[in-house]
Each structure stands twice: as C-alpha cells, then as structure tokens.
C-alpha cells in the first residue's frame, strides 16, 4: 500500500533522510523508531507530499506522490507532529471543515462522519470548545480524529500518543489495532513498549538511515534478556 524507495532529503549539507526504502502492506502496522532528529518526521512529510524529496519516490496505493499528489492525499490520513489545527475554530467546526474538504458535502453525511470520529476519540464533551482552549492531550485527539474522518486506507501518524494520559494511550493503541486489518499504518513513537504492543513491524532509523527492519520479536531476540531501550541504544549510537 505504501512504498518508499531511496528517499533522500538534505538540508544544507546535512542528510536529514539518507536513502530510506521500505513497504507497508495492508494489515501491517509499522513502528518508526529513532532518536530525535533521526529523520522520522521528514520521511513522513515526504510520503504525504508536504515536502519534495531530493531523490527517491514514495507511492501510496500505486500512485506516485510526485505525479499525482492529490490522488495520494485522498487515500491518506495524516496526523502531523504536534497535531496542528486552527486554534480559533471549535472542535466541531474544524472537523466539519475537514469532512467537507474530504468530499462529504451532504449535511447528513458530514454530520455522521463528524459524530463518528467524535465518538471514536472521546471528544464529544469538548465539541463546542475552541481548539486553542483545549489541553494538549485533547488537541492531539483532534488531530487524530481529523486523520480518521474519511476512513482512509493508509494512515501516517507522527507520534499519535504523544501527550496522552495512560488511559488514552491504551485507547488509541486499541483503536489503531482494531482498524489495522484493512489499513496500512505507519506510526512514529519514542515509546518502545508501544511498538511491542501494537506494531507488526519495526524500523529503526538513525541519522537518516535504516539500522533495523524486522518484527518486534526479532528485535528483542537480538539481545536476549536485554531491555528494549538497551537494544535501541546499541543500534542508534
């Protein structure tokens, strides 16, 4: 579903992403790990068509993002890092706007979509609050809701559980796992246990390069008995 080949992005003389290749099939949840500045967000931005790669290609559902960016964007649900949203809009107004631009123009259909994601992400109690007055975790949920509104076949989530309380973290993980059967999901995270809990595959990148691409159990088997963060440290330093 999502296919990335030799992606490169340089800023000045710094290789933010340096030749990354992988594919994610439907039913897979790919966990994207790596230290700060490794190039996780930059890779996601290239897949979603927000920034143009210096080399390499990204395709979603067979469509090259460089050839038909809108075609790719239609199939993607994207939660950017730190979940940007228009602060002066209420949660409901914002989600209605996203629904409209995602092609749900019929009032009843639009309302159904908005209600559905409000329920999924437990936002109903703050629906009339402006986004700037929400707490960090609630803002994050608005970003998540926005990415799910059109039930996309591919999801790209940049730190989806960042800022959520333990209950909500669990809730979001369950939600992702339940949806994943017919979707291709990429999510980045700094929580190693999260990868073990929900991901079917894990890619670790450091300085823009892939240093591990395997199942979570294979990752653990690298150093039997060691903690995950020790394995992570050994791979990325």
């Amino acid at each position: 579903m999502i296919e990335v080949k030799g992606l490169v992005k340089t800023y000045g003389n710094k290789h933010a992403v340096d030749g990354i290749t992988f594919t994610v099939k439907r039913g897979e949840i790919l966990g994207f790990l790596g230290p700060n500045g490794a190039g996780k967000s930059t890779t996601m931005k290239m897949i979603t068509g927000f920034i143009r790669p210096d080399a390499g290609t990204a395709t979603v559902g067979g469509i090259d993002v460089a050839v038909d960016p809108v075609g790719v964007k239609r199939q993607l649900g994207y939660l950017p890092e730190s979940a940007p949203a228009y602060p002066e809009m209420t949660v409901e107004e914002f989600l209605r706007f996203i629904a409209e631009i995602r092609g749900f123009r019929e009032t009843s259909e639009k309302r159904a979509r908005v209600e559905h994601v409000l329920g999924l992400t437990h936002l109903a109690s703050v629906r009339t609050q402006t986004i700037e007055t929400l707490s960090k975790g609630y803002k994050q949920r608005v970003g998540f809701a926005q990415a799910l509104i059109h039930n996309p076949p591919a999801l790209v989530l940049d730190e989806p559980t960042d800022g959520l309380d333990p209950n909500q973290k669990n809730e979001v993980r369950t939600l992702i796992r339940n949806m994943a059967a017919e979707k291709a999901v990429i999510l980045s995270t700094h929580i190693l246990e999260e990868v073990e809990a929900i991901c079917t595959r894990v890619i670790i990148i450091a300085s823009g390069r892939i240093v591990a691409d395997e199942t979570p159990s294979a990752l653990r088997a690298r150093q039997p008995g060691a903690r995950l963060d020790e394995i992570f440290r050994a791979l990325t330093t």
């Binding site: 068509g49 960016p69 239609r74 950017p80 730190s82 940007p84 228009y86 996203i98 631009i101 092609g103």
Partner: peptide
C-alpha cells in the same frame, strides 16, 4: 507559523 500549513497542504487540495 502555527504549522497548520502542513495540515492544509496534505488535504486533497492543489
């Protein structure tokens, strides 16, 4: 500044 441009330009609009 607020980063919403990333949201806007990854919606299905040219």
């Amino acid at each position: 500044r607020s980063g919403t441009v990333e949201l806007l330009l990854t919606l299905p609009v040219t």
